[in-house]
Each structure stands twice: as C-alpha cells, then as structure tokens.
Design a binder for these strands. Structure first.
Lengths: 241, 241
DNA sequence: CGCCTAGTTGAGGTAAGTCAATTCACGTGG
DNA sequence: CCACGTGAATTGACTTACCTCAACTAGGCG
C-alpha cells in the first residue's frame, strides 16, 4: 500500500512515520485519466487541485499574446502537476498531457489540512517544491547562457537522469515521446534549428534521437560537452529523520 | 515589534496568530552585515542558514565553467536569500551583495523546528517559495521567447512592481543600482547590446535608465510592449485565515 | 596625475531564425 | 485499394538579431 508515486517521491526527502504515511494515503482521493493534447488546466484559472502523475508524460508551459509558447518543464511519472497553482491559488501556467496520462488527485484543502496534522509532511513538500525550482533555475541557465547544441545536450542528459530515478532510463538511453516542436519550445529555439542541432550531435557521435528513442553514444563526452552536473537532481537520503 | 521584513512578507500570505508571531520573532537570531561584492555563499557550499534581506540589493547567480554568468534573480528588501539552499541542504547557486546589505539570519534547524510548532508557518514559507518560483518561471519565458527590447522592458517593469510592493518605487520609476553588466547577465545578453537596447527604449520614449534611476516615460505603452502581466507578483489578501 | 570601472558607439561576423520545398508515416474516407 | 490530408522530420537558401572586437569618453579615487 505504501508504494504510490507520491509516497516514493516524498519518502526520498523525509523519513515518514506510519502515522504520516496514513495521512498521505488519505490524500489520494481519486484516480483520474486525461487524454493527450487536452489541457489539464489553463493559465489564469484558479487552482483547486494538484495532481501526481502516475503514468505518461505531460508538460507545463506559458503562451505569449503573439502565440509563442515557452515550455517550462516536462513532467514524468512521480512528478507534481500544478502544485504551484494550488499554493498561489491561481495558475500562472498551463499543463497539457503529451500522452494519455493517469494521475491521482490531491485537493488543495486536504493538502493544507494535512500540513497541520503532520508538519513533517509540509517540510517534505517544501523540499519537493525546492527541487522543482532548482530545475527551473537550471533551465534558465541553459537557455540564457548556452548555445543550441550545448542546450540540447544538457536537456537530454537532465531528462535521462530524471527518468533513471524512476526506472525509465539508464546511461544507455531512454524512450522519449517528445517531438522536435516540443523540444524547440522548451529550449527557446526554432523547430528547424532543433533538427539541425540533433543532426550535429548525432554526427559528432554523442547522442542519437530517432524514432522516439534517445541513445547516448558517448555518455561521458556528452556530459562534458554540456557541462552537466546532476547534483541539483539528486535525491539524497532522507535529511529529516 | 511585529514589523520585521519577514513578518511583513509572510503576513501577506497567511494571517498569523500571536503565538505564530512569537515563534517567528524567535527565528531572527542575528542581525548581520555584508559588504558589496563579496559572496554571501557560493554554489556547492552546504547551506546552514538562510537570510532575510533588510536593506540593500543582492543577486543570485550561477557560474558556468567557461566563466559565463547567469543571474537568476535580484533580491530587494524583504526577500529571502538562500532559502532553497537550506531546504536542499546544498547551495545550487551563489549570492552576492550589490550594495552593502543588512540581513537577519535564520538557522535551518530553527526553521524546520518552527514548522513542527506552527504548521501554518510552513504553509506561509511554501507560499513565499512558490512566488519565488513563479518569478523564475517568468524569467525563463522572458529569456526564451522575447527579443532583447521586450526582455529589458519586461524586466524593468517587474523590478518596478516588486519595489513598489515594499515602498521603494512607483509607476513613475525607482532608484536602481544595477550596472549594464548585471542587466546583461540577468537577461542573457551582452553588455554592449544592453546599452543599445536601453538607448532604443529611451529613444522610443518608453523608459529611461540613467545614472541609477529608472524612469517610466509612458508606463502603459511599456507594459503593452513588454506583455507585462503582474498577476504572478500579486500578494493578495491572506488566503489562510 | 593616472588608473579603473561604467557607459557609449561603430564595424563586421555568426548563430540562429524564417521561408519554402520535399519526404515519409499514418489515418480516413470514397 | 487508392486518393487524400495531416503532422513530423529533413534540408537548402537567405535574412537578421545579437555578439565580438575595438576605440573612445567621462567620472571617481588613490
């Protein structure tokens, strides 16, 4: 019973007691499904519930008035969807499933109430939110100061490391349902240039992204090229005991 | 006694009881001063304490191995310094004061202990952290999808709105100690281009940044040009009562 | 007085964007 | 079964936003 995605995720941050686990269990109200391509919620909407992604892929993004899109992050199983929206009581971004997805719903009211019963839970959530923020910061550095090829390499490595943490990837590579258009909007590039950069990395013998699979040809050379340091992703042993 | 920067900030998020206020008071251990230009802490260092900025300006940044710098955000009075570092137990970024600054120190251990005494405090901190994250997300959109002039305009407006919240600015403008080099590293531009863009905005009659003062010449035209929507900054009335 | 930092401007280079055409896989309907 | 449309990937030709290098000015300070 303890092996829901949420328990696994938070357990990595804070050692949870039986009492805390049972509070956590009661948070999972409903299991829901959403189809690929239809927004879970939209920027400007007020956030009533957050979700934990159980299976499938999604992405969070913002749309500019001229129609341009910036993807903030991709979500993989175990990740929160819309946690910030719940806390700020308004969504500053939209979330769209890439594949069909399964999620478990967490109501805002339940979450806040759970905090008062088990403060350590609040600490765990705060930890998870901080890790999410650290990822966004790394994306900022990526887009702000790296060129297109380094950016792509860094992105593919980060995604691989995150997938490896949930058993969906390794140093060899991983299955990846992202299109070049999605990559473009995540990396602040044009789709055409994404294509050229992928070819460049492939020709250089570093990574190959073909037909839904990312293959790391020379992992070490790639990490050096991209200046990839996975520290910010590490789920160390529980820090609160 | 209730009017420390931290109390003001958190009180905007969560209505705090007398008991909670007194816990909060005890958090403020020491008042410290740091001089301009010397790092408060450095990336890779383990975070033992966070600070609340009482006066002066600072910025958080990351350095790449080739010496390039990406500034993640600027901190003004009332902002946290290194909150994420404390929670992740390791700093993923550095912080440097721009001016001489005064801060109050909050020890990590005290903060976590306070959570267990007053869970609503944890909620308030989580709120504050979410707002910080929302700002970083907006910076990501800014750098990823806006051109240099829009980026600059958006940045100056955001800073103005934040300063207005703490009584240090208005729609007319504000005092601003940032150099063009700092702006460049925050916006992912070169210092030379920052100079040109500032001239362009000045010539267009939208903003003037001269000798440490930002003056909004035509506030409405500027917000439209930059697509600036301050929702993500708004400190609405306390949501938890 | 001379050095240093911040700002300013010009000339020329380049990384990445735009526009456009082609291919391929897939699904859908006549 | 084939015609057709649609979305994704690919590649070429051309444009451009921003960068780099470089020179010069002005203020602050030992």
């Amino acid at each position: 019973m303890e092996n829901t995605p949420l328990v696994r995720k938070l357990g990595a941050f804070v050692a949870l007691s039986d009492a805390e686990l049972s509070v956590l269990q009661r948070l999972h109200k409903r299991r829901r499904n959403f189809v690929a391509g239809r927004d879970l919620f939209h920027q400007g909407q007020s956030g009533q519930a957050a979700y934990i992604l159980a299976s499938g892929w999604a992405f969070s993004y913002k749309i500019l008035p001229d129609g341009q899109r910036q993807i903030v992050d991709f979500q993989i199983p175990g990740d929160f969807l819309g946690l910030r929206s719940v806390l700020l009581h308004i969504s500053d971004h939209s979330i769209e499933p890439i594949t069909n997805i399964e999620v478990t719903e967490v109501l805002a009211s339940d979450l806040l109430e759970a905090f008062s019963q088990t403060p350590r839970l609040a600490t765990a959530i705060l930890w998870a939110a901080s890790r999410d923020e650290a990822m966004v910061v790394e994306h900022l550095v990526n887009i702000g100061r790296r060129n297109a090829a380094e950016r792509m390499a860094h992105f593919l490595l980060e995604l691989g490391a995150r997938l490896a943490l949930v058993g969906m990837g390794s140093r060899a590579g991983y299955a990846c349902p992202l299109t070049q258009y999605l990559l473009a909007d995540a990396l602040g590039l044009s789709a055409v240039h994404v294509n050229r950069v992928l070819r460049q990395l492939r020709d250089a013998g570093m990574v190959t992204f073909r037909e839904g699979f990312v293959t790391f040809d020379t992992y070490n050379r790639l990490t050096e090229f991209a200046d990839f340091d996975p520290t910010y992703l590490d789920q160390v042993n529980p820090l609160l005991r």
